[in-house]
Design a protein around this nucleic acid. Structure first.
Lengths: 132, 132
DNA sequence: CGGCATCCGTTCCGATACTG
DNA sequence: CAGTATCGGAACGGATGCCG
């Protein structure tokens, strides 16, 4: 695949030396948004990895209804959670981690561990940097 | 620690069942931004984990000078990279992954692996979802 | 109960121009 | 070469109101 363009026009996926750093970024951009992590981790610790809308609203503090809906919809779109609507009054909707969603918990735990081990260092680096 | 407030007013760190999901989110928000991952992975694959500004600009396609500067500054602030200025003309500035920055590569590799193994599933879930 | 539609302030980020 | 300063559009996300 000859390329006579300037570097800035290359496809990021072919450049950074890993198979697909663009996909990694895309993933991190997704789960790095304001609420996804809280929802995934909340579902992870709930029995059956399943909860209804209002439960999630309560377990994720300060989330707005709007963002809860939007975030869950994105997670559903990515195949990380399922959404099941029960035709009752009042309506009941339950969300559950998929196999795919659960599989994400392992690499996620790696990050949780890293944060546990190194977060103080990060905070210290920040305050050192800021005091200059 | 008694708490008589409504759920929405709780500190997120105490609620989600992990030690500090807020810190995990904060990390993911950082490295989940548009360019950090590319820079960290670029430095990771370079000999000595060290490169100068213009090298990074070339290895991370389509990044603007402004965002390269800002992103590197943030990584430096978090203690993930160092910045060394050489008093020459023309000026030379080199960036290098710190120990802390390198330690992040391990959990990051977990994510890279997950993406390699599951990204097609995610894309398929997305197209399935979108076609409805 | 579990949404959706709208409004609106904030943040992000690319483009451009300028500098030691 | 490696920045900094400024501008403006786009995206994010909270608040509010309405609805089946």
């Amino acid at each position: 695949m000859k390329n006579t363009n300037k570097t800035k026009q290359l496809d990021p996926a072919y450049v950074c030396g890993h198979k697909d750093p663009a996909a990694v970024r895309e993933l991190l951009t997704k789960i790095g948004d304001k609420w996804s992590i809280f929802l995934v981790l909340s579902l992870a610790k709930i029995h059956g990895n399943r909860a209804r809308f209002s439960e999630l609203e309560r377990s994720v503090p300060a989330i707005s209804q709007r963002m809860l809906t939007l975030t869950l919809r994105n997670l559903e779109r990515d195949g990380l959670v399922t959404r099941e609507v029960f035709p009752e009054v009042p309506p009941r909707v339950e969300y559950e981690l998929t196999i795919l969603g659960k599989s994400l918990l392992r690499p996620l735990d790696g990050l949780v561990e890293w944060v546990s081990a190194n977060w103080e260092d990060v905070k210290k680096a920040q305050s050192d940097f800021d005091s200059k």
